[in-house]
Simulated assay, not measured.
Amino acid sequence: MPTSPLHYQNQLLAALPEEERRRLGVSLELVPLDYGQCLYEPGAQILDVFFPTTAIVSLLSDIEDGTTAETAAVGNEGIVGVTLFMGGETTLSRAMVYSPGHGYKLTGRILKGEFHRAGPLQRSLMRYTQALLAEMAQTLVCMRHHTLEQQFCRWLLRRFDRLSPQALVMSQEMIAQVLGVRRAAISEVAIGLRTAGLISYGRGRVNLLDRPGLEARSCACYAAIQGEFARLLPGGTGT
């Protein structure tokens, strides 16, 4: 595939020098990433990686009681499958598409070859991995120490950073599953945010109405994550 303007929708690909992007572009395959699609299961060997353009992929960890919780998400700022080039081959996380769209698929063999060239792609992937690990760590702190409203606001803001227009299509049941809480708890928090005029929601659709207000209701974790992505990546807020 020749270099496409769509490559610029993924920030890691867009940041590459033109020559490297052209070489990699021959092997990139634009694929749909559908709602509910599982890209990886825990423990399964990773054969391909994905560079999302318009989709968002949740990285979920299983909990002993049978529930799950999202430790991070990947949108157009990153890549799904970092363990492949880090040498792990498998992962404990489940990668699920909850915001459908498209992304570029690349076979693991080709990615490893490009990574071991020790060029711009390797440097970008290493910096992205550092930012992703920081998000995972901050998310765990948030889940342990902050209120559900603060967690939900942080989670919404990170989603809206990657979405245009500012509308999230996802049921409360799925949001509760991602955050590892009861649906009734999410419903109560969402009603409070809607009453405050920060969001609107209905029929599985959440719209952002007041970003400054939502940021004020969030905890410091959102700004910390944003700051780390901005520090490590070009345009690295996921916008």
Rank of each mutant, 00 (worst) to 15 (best):
L13R: 00
C221R: 13
D161F: 09
G75A: 02
L33F: 03
T107Q: 15
C38Y: 11
P165F: 03
G87I: 00
T53P: 01
G25E: 07
R205D: 04
F85D: 01
K112C: 07
L232Y: 06
S93E: 13
G36N: 07
H7F: 10
L84Y: 01
M126G: 04
V57D: 04
A230E: 10
T71C: 12
E215Q: 09
E188D: 08
C153S: 07
R23C: 00
Y104A: 08
T195K: 14
L39P: 03
G43T: 08
L133P: 09
G235C: 06
P52Q: 06
E188G: 05
L198Q: 00
Y40S: 13
L133G: 12
A134D: 12
Q150D: 05
L106M: 06
S99L: 10
T90G: 07
L30V: 12
H116P: 00
Y8T: 13
E77L: 13
M96T: 14
L33M: 05
G66N: 03
I56F: 01
L28E: 00
I63K: 14
Q166T: 13
I79L: 15
E135C: 10
R182M: 03
G236D: 00
E18M: 12
V206K: 05
R203A: 15
E64G: 00
I225E: 07
P32K: 10
P52T: 07
E19P: 04
G192A: 09
Y222R: 07
M143Y: 15
L133E: 13
P120M: 13
G81Q: 01
A185D: 15
F152V: 14
S218T: 05
T195C: 12
L30I: 12
A216M: 07
M136T: 11
G180I: 08
A55L: 04
S200E: 10
L156W: 05
P120I: 10
A69F: 14
A73T: 08
K112D: 10
L208T: 13
Q37P: 03
I199K: 06
L12G: 02
